[in-house]
């Protein structure tokens, strides 16, 4: 079932076109990774889906119904973990979670239970009475998460929840998100960290300049590009003639030879690497170490847009 359906969404900030005919579908029970560089429109698309922002064109459906600012029945089922930590500085951890949970759950008993569960879930039990100011960056992020999920939403948006979080905390957060998915929530996860999205997402949509340029599982995306793997072979005394031959083999691209290392990108053909090695051995060249690197999502992005996704 489609939980979110976005069709040709256009959003302009004055002259700046932030979203340009964005199409996005999220299915029930999946973690959709929304991957894109800074300023590509991830937050903007989430805010539009949430009816927080007005948009210029397009259609947005959530749980099969048109989303609007007054669609309270839909909003009830949605939880958001915003990019910036959004809590009240004057309230303690527990009070913050209770306040925001109270926006959805009016029954006191139920709410108390939910708040306790949320605190447990993000591991802030020892910090219940702390004010946000006294929490470390990572703990603050966890509080931010707890405030967004305490009311047990069916659809949860995580907008870069791990920015500026140490690897340990980050792993805990990612584990938690998987746990939520296992409990039946549908999740939209935005990030510009490739590894996170690859680990977490069952499907990935790559977004650039307000447009989804590719979507599918990580494997599908990698297979969709021409490049298959990068091969590096330590081999001595390769001649111009050898290189010309390798280039003519048809399934190897961007062949280069430097400091005794042959580097080439393999296409999608079969036995590409074995063929190459057989050839080198036939030429009586001595081969050292052989490295093979699988394509990454960065390669996918690079091939489609001509630029790097990574900015770090």
């Amino acid at each position: 079932m489609e939980v979110i359906k976005v069709r040709s969404l256009v959003k302009k900030y004055k002259e700046l076109v932030a979203l340009e005919h964005l199409d996005l579908t999220v299915y029930e029970g999946e973690i959709l990774g929304l991957l894109g560089p800074n300023g590509s429109g991830k937050s903007t698309s989430i805010n539009c889906i949430l009816s927080l922002l007005s948009y210029d064109k397009g259609e947005i459906e959530v749980f099969g119904k048109k989303m609007s600012p007054k669609a309270y029945d839909l909003k009830k089922m949605i939880g958001v973990v915003p990019q910036e930590v959004a809590v009240y500085e004057e309230l303690t951890v527990q009070e913050n979670i209770d306040f925001f949970c109270g926006l959805y759950i009016k029954d006191k008993e139920t709410r108390k239970k939910y708040v306790d569960e949320a605190i447990e879930f993000v591991g802030l039990n020892d910090f219940r009475k702390f004010r946000p100011k006294k929490l470390s960056g990572g703990l603050k992020r966890r509080l931010n998460i707890a405030c967004g999920i305490a009311h047990k939403p069916k659809l949860i948006f995580f907008d870069e929840p791990t920015v500026a979080v140490d690897p340990q905390s980050r792993n805990k957060i990612l584990d938690g998100i998987e746990q939520l998915r296992d409990q039946g929530a549908t999740i939209v996860y935005t990030s510009h960290y490739i590894e996170e999205v690859e680990r977490l997402a069952s499907r990935i949509a790559i977004i650039d300049k307000g447009h989804v340029i590719a979507s599918g599982t990580a494997d599908e995306l990698k297979k969709s590009i021409k490049k298959n793997e990068t091969i590096r072979i330590e081999v001595a005394g390769l001649t111009e003639k050898n290189i010309a031959f390798i280039e003519s083999m048809g399934s190897l691209y961007s062949v280069s030879y430097e400091n005794g290392v042959l580097r080439a990108e393999a296409g999608t053909g079969k036995h590409v690497v074995t063929d190459l090695i057989t050839y080198l051995q036939g030429e009586d060249l001595s081969i050292g170490n052989i490295y093979s690197e699988q394509p990454t999502l960065n390669d996918v992005f690079l091939e489609i847009t001509g630029k790097e996704l990574r900015d770090e």
Partner: peptide, 16 residues
């Protein structure tokens, strides 16, 4: 007002 504070943004997207 969601443009004034993050907490208000949470209110804006809530069902309250």
């Amino acid at each position: 007002r969601a443009d004034v504070s993050g907490s208000a943004m949470r209110v804006a997207i809530s069902s309250s």
